[in-house]
Design a protein around this nucleic acid. Structure first.
Lengths: 204, 204
DNA sequence: ATTCGATTTAACTAACTGGTTAAATATTTT
DNA sequence: AAAATATTTAACCAGTTAGTTAAATCGAAT
């Protein structure tokens, strides 16, 4: 029974993640989640008493996954540029595996920002630390001086937006030719790294 | 009565735009739109037979507004860089005035891409023309060579994403200090122009 | 004054949805 | 075998929402 309980709970969580990410909190239906999990609605409520509780479980799971170890930019004895490049690689790989994450997070963020705020606060994420590490790289002369917040917003924009706007990119540039679009997204990491570094590396 | 009809219809359209952009198609309620317009639900259906029809009217209005004259990048005898700078100025000014547009469009885009596609097709928007104009600037040696699709995606990302992720930016970087955040967004046009040009201008 | 369209009121339907319940059945544990 | 837990079934409740309807009222044009 322990196996059963664990197994079913896992099936529910997987199904809920699938459906919630695809449809969002508002669009998701408990019946659909039950169907996707291969169980019925009664059992779904037997495990998670309400849709809100189930959504919270999924949302925190997703956020903890999608806000990756910013520590990569922070820690490590390698140069800022090396750490930056590593961050882009890891982050875009993550987005390639979960292309619907940005859309989901943005949607829920605009629906109810407080949920995200609580999670960030709970996890002890410290944007000020990230900012100061960027500033230090500038003071060392590794990269050009600019407002570090703009720098960080630029980097995240270049990584995340193309995934959030995926259907538009596919339609406008590739007329929904999935293969060509896939290739395009596989080039993103290299493109972003070059584009940013060409802009911020101190020229000699 | 003609005045009345026009006036009411306009009130409805304004109210619907307000509510739809704030809550999206799923989240919006016909009752709320009626309230916002200062009329009742019966009259709302008297003018627009269904929520779908009303939404379509708003969505096409919004899209035609938000997909601005790309012709700026195309036409004009000035240099590509000058036209690029003009585009950024115009576009970010538009986003400053309507900061909830990106979130709204992305949400509806992910909910039902076909609506957007139809509109783009109907308006005769031609991404291939934009691409070829970017290519020409590269061939003239005005800017560095790269995949023009990546270039365009980069530019749009830098402009749009910060607005789509507005609540997150506000919370992470400004702890919801509205004044500081406002100032930050007012700097965006200059920042984006410099960031992009530093990356793509051919160095001498 | 009458007519005609605009608007309100208020009640209603029909469908959907989250959530509950109780009884029956299956499965596992002891 | 007995006890305990997991799961199903199927019906139900309560709240919400898009959309309808019919009658009354209002305002302007003829």
């Amino acid at each position: 029974m322990e196996q059963k309980r664990d197994n079913t709970e896992e099936k529910i969580l997987n199904a809920a993640q699938e459906v919630f990410i695809r449809k969002g909190m508002d669009g998701a239906r408990m019946q659909e989640i039950a169907d996707e999990a291969g169980i019925n609605k009664a059992l779904l409520h037997y495990y998670f008493r309400s849709k809100d509780k189930l959504f919270d479980a999924i949302f925190s799971k997703v956020i903890e996954f999608a806000f990756p170890r910013i520590s990569i930019i922070l820690s490590g004895e390698s140069s800022f540029v090396a750490r930056f490049e590593q961050f882009i690689d890891i982050y875009i790989e993550l987005l390639m595996k979960h292309p619907f994450l940005p859309g989901f997070i943005l949607k829920e963020l605009n629906r109810d920002p407080s949920g995200l705020f609580k999670l960030i606060a709970r996890r002890g994420l410290r944007p000020d630390l990230v900012i100061s590490h960027v500033e230090q790289a500038m003071e060392r002369g590794e990269i050009v001086r600019m407002n570090p917040r703009h720098f960080l917003v630029n980097v995240v924009s270049l990584c995340v937006f193309p995934f959030a706007a995926r259907p538009m990119v596919g339609y406008l540039f590739f007329e929904n030719d999935a293969g060509a679009q896939e290739a395009f997204y596989r080039e993103r990491a290299a493109v972003v790294k070059k584009f940013v570094l060409d802009s911020i590396l101190v020229k000699k």
